[in-house]
């Protein structure tokens, strides 16, 4: 097989910095398979021992929210101001809220 000049698939890398923290997007790597993606991701994004867990996900498998309609897409959340505690009035001077 001589297809080695084709581009290996892209994988998105997520790292967890310490126990209890969320996994956060770190970047991406090219790799022929998942095992190689993990090893490459470790060498690129975990060289300083600042990672306790890592995920790699094929970039093509990620579905993202539409960037050109970010306003309307997220509006149902933004307009419900009564979901925030600041919406409510309580008697002045009351402690413990």
């Amino acid at each position: 097989m001589t297809s080695n000049e084709t581009q290996w698939p892209l994988w998105e890398v997520f790292t967890q910095k310490d126990d209890g923290s969320p996994h956060e997007h770190a970047g991406s790597v090219h790799a022929a398979d998942a095992e190689m993606a993990l090893q490459n991701a470790r060498d690129v994004y975990g060289r300083r021992g600042n990672v306790v867990s890592m995920w790699v996900v094929p970039s093509a498998m990620i579905t993202a929210s539409p960037s050109d309609q970010a306003g309307p897409f997220f509006e149902p959340g933004a307009e419900k101001i009564y979901r925030h505690p600041q919406f409510y009035k309580i008697p002045r001077g009351l402690k413990g809220f």
Partner: peptide, 23 residues
């Protein structure tokens, strides 16, 4: 490095499962 890339692709193709297809 060409032979390394070829070997890695061949290995991935051999071990590929439907969820982790390399190409």
């Amino acid at each position: 490095g060409r032979w390394v890339r070829e070997a890695a692709e061949a290995y991935a193709a051999k071990h590929s499962s439907p969820a982790q297809s390399a190409a």
